[in-house]
Every structure is written in C-alpha cells, then in structure tokens.
Design a protein around this nucleic acid. Structure first.
Lengths: 338, 338
DNA sequence: CTGTTAGCGCTTTCAA
DNA sequence: TTGAAAGCGCTAACAG
C-alpha cells in the first residue's frame, strides 16, 4: 500500500504537506501541489479512509435502517426507490451508505448500537416509524444524529423527519372520489400501527365527514395481503347490505392484490367499483387498469432525508425540522363517474 | 468516548490486556477477563472500529453494487429480496454492508474505485453482469475479492459467481408449456445483453428444438416494459399470421405488464393464451391470474454470494467457484391445456 | 508556505 | 499470564 510517507519521500516534501495537498489546503503553493499530485498519480496513491476517520472522528458514512423483514413487506418497490433517492445525495456528498442487515427487531437494534458505539456511521436514517420503537428511543437518548422517514411517535418537534402530508393526501384523494359521485367509500390500509396508514385513514375520514357522509367502521379494514387473511376481510366488505362503490387503498402493492381478488370475484374496475391508491410506484402504471394514485415522490423523500441528516451531522445543533414532501394525484383509469 | 486506556486504568491492567480480553485471548486468566469485562460494562466501553480496522487492515464490510439505475429496473422486488439474502449472512458474520449509490455507470465505477483503494470494504458483490463491464474488469485486474450474482462475461472459471441454471430453467418451463399441448410459443425477454435473458432464451430455444418445433425469430422479442415501446412489440406478435398460444416471459415484473396489455387487448389468460415467467417474487402470487413461474430462490442467491465472498476475503487463495442455486417451478394459474 | 511532532484508539511483537 | 513499546496511515497544532 502506498502511504502518504511514500509520496512525501518521492516528492521531497514532508508528510504534512502531502496531507495538505490532499485537503487542497490554500496555503500550499500551486507548484508543490502540482508536483505532489503528479507523484501521487505515479505511485497510485489513495488515501486510507480508516486512518483518516480515526483522526477526524467522522466516517462520512450514513446508516440506513430498513424495517424488520419477517414478512414480505420489504418486497415493496418503495424501498429500492427510496434507497435510490438517499443514494443520490449521499453520492453527491461523497458519503457512503451502510445498510442494515438484521431481520428481527432485536437484531436491528443490536446493529444500530454497533453502528453508533463503534463509530461506523455519522448518522442514521430510519425507514420506518413505529410506536414505542427501541431504536428510535435509543438514538434519541444518545443524542445521535438521525432522521425518520415518516412521523415520529414521540418528540415530534425534536426529531427531524421527512414525510408527506398524508392526512391531506388521504383527504384529497377521497374528495376526488366524492366529486366523482361516490358516497359509499371504503378504506383498506396496511398495518394499522403504522403512521402512514393512520394519517391516510384520518384524511379519508375527514373528507367523508366534511362531505356530510357518515363513515362507518365496517368500511375500514386493515390487511397487508401478505397473509391469506386479507381475502376474507375484503369479501366481507362486499357482503355488506350496502357495499362500497369506491375504495381508498393505502399502498399500490396492496392495490394490486385488491384489484386481483375483486376482479376474480366478478367485479370490474372501474365500472363496478372505483379504486384509488398511494405511492405511484412503477407497477401502478402497469396494473389493469392503471391506478389513479397519489404520487408521494419517494425519491425525493429519500433525497431530502439524506440531505437533512448530513446537515445535521455537519452541525450538531442544527435545529430539528419537519420536511413535508408535496404530493400530487396521478389520474389514471381506476376511477369512474357514478 | 471511552477508550481501551480508560478501561485499563480503571481495572488496573495494561491496555494490551484489555485488548486481549476483547479478543477473548485464551492466555488471559478467567479472573482478569471477568474483572475487565465488568469495568467495560460499567464504563460503557465500545471498541472503535476505525482504530481496529487501521491496524488489522480489514473492515469486515462488504460492498454491494447495484446496476445503474437510470431506468426503473431497480423497482424490481428482486433487489430488496436479494439484499435481504445478502444481509442475512453478513449479519450473522458480524459484517456490515455498504451499498453503492451511483446512478450512472461512471459514477458506480468511481465509487467502486473508492471502495477498494480507500479500504472501505474487504470484498464486493456485483448484482449484475454485463458484457465488457469496467467494474468487473477493474476488480479482476486488481485481484480484489469479489463475486458476481449471475454469469461473468469473461474469465468464467476465475471469477466466483452464483447463479441459477437459467438454461435448464428456461428449458424446463418451456417443456412444461409443450407438455400442456402448446406448439406456438413466444419468448419475451428483458434487455438482451443481460446473461439471464440470454440463458433463459437459449433454454427456451433448446426445448423447442428438442420438441421438434422450429423456433422462428418473430416469436422472440425484448422489452423491459419500462418504455412504451414494449406495447408495440407485443402487439406485432399477435398480428402475426400464426400468433402464439403460449409465452415465456423472462421476469415476473415484465409479466405483469404483458398480462395487463394482453387482457386489455381482449385476450384472456390462460384461456386464450398461456404465460409462464421467472423469479417468483411476491407479486406473482397476486397478479390475475397468479403466475406459473420458476422460483429462482432470490434470497438464497444473495445469501450464498455473501457466504462465498466472505470465505474469499478470509482466505485470499480460496479457489474460484461457480455456485448454482436450484430452481423449481411453482405451478399457479396462468397456463391452460391446449 | 512548509516541516516537526504528537497523537487518534487499537493490536501485536517481544520481554518478562 | 501480563506489560511495554512500537506502529497502523493519517491530520493538526505549533513552529519557523
């Protein structure tokens, strides 16, 4: 391995000068810089990141924590897309990204502890937000730089997070259904302890109320369609005396499942029943029919969270902020006039 | 930060002893170990990974390189799933995983160079295999430990890779269609410069030949359904004098697109035309109809590649190997008898 | 503008 | 079974 000393010797300067050249220190003459750089190139010098990290006490690495993956929720294209967004700014800033590998909550927690105690990373991005999460609490107590994609359970004003206005999004998409003449509108959400689900559902409820349409509990179900249970829940929805004519589904992937089983049961979308959804991942374009869905700009969600985190690691007392990524409805073919 | 010296002082031993306790060196008495460990706990000691890396010249980190993400191919659930597989063994071995963040080929190449020159990682997993890839060539020339998921273009016997027997898989699934009475079978593949596509297609062709069915070029098309071009290609397939009754599609996500447009055009699956696919990602269960597809065991693909790589980093002259992950056909409802 | 010197926190001979 | 000392490759005062 070529070290700074080798370069120093070969170019007839001191190691510190070489170090300064690397840092492009303005107090080094252009001449020496050029000379040293040439030698670096010739010798094939590359700075050893561990040595530098050790002294500057920063790794320029960000830890990204995925939710526990005991079910198939991770197969949601949401994740590669948000990783791409995070990656874009991480890359631009010359940082690197360390991904969590634990499958259970405990494993993940252990891993996060290693990350922060072992100085693996300068900061952490949490790709989920749950009630009473040990990782969140730990990071908060340690006062370690982190941001949440989504909404924190506690300390909302002290934890910087980037989120959509899921309440508004849920409300707007429901209002759209109402405007199309629907009165009986159901809600199908994923895990009910996720804030996304709760917020979108609250928006849905608010829209119904404001429209003067009562909202009944039988119209709200939660399923991830990952276990076979979901099927029954949806069937019972249509066994009701007065079945819905429209459905708000909280996630595109769930929509695909709902779509399939509805058509299987003889309903046609959108003729018989209309369906709207969230996220606008690629597959929502290629379902049959293509989905009217709210584009939450996953990529930006990722990019902004990385940006906010890096700012925070650079300046420890950067105030906590909430960053709302705007959404917009993408109109496709899963809704019909009533 | 609590260092080894602090622990040493507090427990009345030397730093080297503490270091040995951490490494669980057998030559340290059980007593001292206990004593020192108690102090470590009390002080909240955690070893600084950078300092250790610097001296042992190993980072216990693996770099995972995704394909360039200029299109939406990354939204394929294949990626989260293989990451999960890789993560499982990385985690078990107490390694960490560094994900690439570049979007273009050039960015990725730069990043890989940083990773290896800067001693960021001990080894690299390539999640793609392309013809004439600069990253592959670089890694090969540097003699840096790496494995490819898929089949290397060159030096097949010198680069350890983990792959499916895509030729056989393609052949078997096509034979299945033949056994079901199909004679006119088309092939729809993704990018034609990908080895997966080529191998699966070759298997398809071989099956047709062996069945005494000629295979004509008009029956083979390539599209990722990411650009609108795919639609036209498929339509022309059915504008043929003698349109196919069965289709082999090289990827579940593409299948979803094909499915949708076929039904849109008035064809019914499987009554009018049968369709088989590859990968068995979650969404193949929830399409309409659910897909008969070959399960390539993505998770294992990831796990085995991580395992092979770690072995290689641990023992530089571990011989190159080819690891074939078995596949199996999952029979669902997208095929009908002719 | 550049060199000298002292560490960063850890592991590892070599001695005892 | 343990300690002393050197050094991994780099940066950062402090001098000059």
């Amino acid at each position: 391995m070529v070290t700074i000393k080798d370069v120093a010797k070969a170019s007839g300067v001191s190691p510190s000068t070489v170090s300064r050249v690397i840092a492009d220190n303005p107090r080094i003459s252009a001449d020496t810089k050029k000379k040293v750089r040439k030698v670096m190139k010739k010798l094939g010098y590359h700075t050893n990141i561990n040595a530098r990290n050790l002294v500057v006490k920063s790794t320029k690495a960000i830890g990204v924590i995925m939710p526990s993956s005991t079910n198939k929720a991770l197969q949601n294209p949401f994740f590669p897309e948000i990783l791409r967004g995070i990656g874009s700014v991480i890359h631009k800033m010359q940082y690197s990204m360390s991904l969590s590998t634990g499958e259970t909550e405990d494993e993940i927690f252990e891993e996060v502890k290693r990350m922060v105690y072992g100085s693996y990373v300068d900061g952490v991005i949490l790709l989920y937000s749950r009630v009473d999460d040990s990782v969140t609490n730990f990071l908060y107590e340690q006062d370690f730089p982190f941001v949440i994609v989504g909404k924190p359970h506690e300390y909302v004003n002290e934890i910087t997070h980037v989120d959509n206005d899921n309440f508004r999004a849920g409300k707007e998409i429901t209002e759209y259904l109402v405007a199309k003449g629907h009165q009986k509108i159901a809600f199908i959400g994923g895990a009910s302890d996720l804030f996304v689900t709760m917020d979108r559902q609250a928006g849905y409820e608010s829209a119904l109320t404001e429209a003067g349409i009562g909202n009944c509990e039988e119209y709200k179900i939660h399923t991830e369609f990952l276990e076979s249970g979901g099927r029954g829940a949806v069937e019972s929805l249509f066994a009701l005396n007065s079945p819905p004519t429209g459905i708000v589904v909280s996630d595109d992937l769930i929509s695909l499942g709902v779509l399939s089983m509805l058509e299987d049961s003889g309903y046609h979308i959108p003729e018989d029943i209309s369906l709207v959804s969230f996220n606008n991942v690629y597959l929502s374009e290629i379902t049959r029919p293509p989905l009217t869905t709210v584009d939450v700009q996953i990529y930006k969600l990722g990019a902004q969270s990385a940006k906010a985190l890096i700012e925070k690691t650079l300046n420890k007392n950067e105030p906590a902020k909430r960053i709302i990524i705007p959404h917009r409805i993408v109109y496709r073919d899963s809704v019909s006039e009533r």
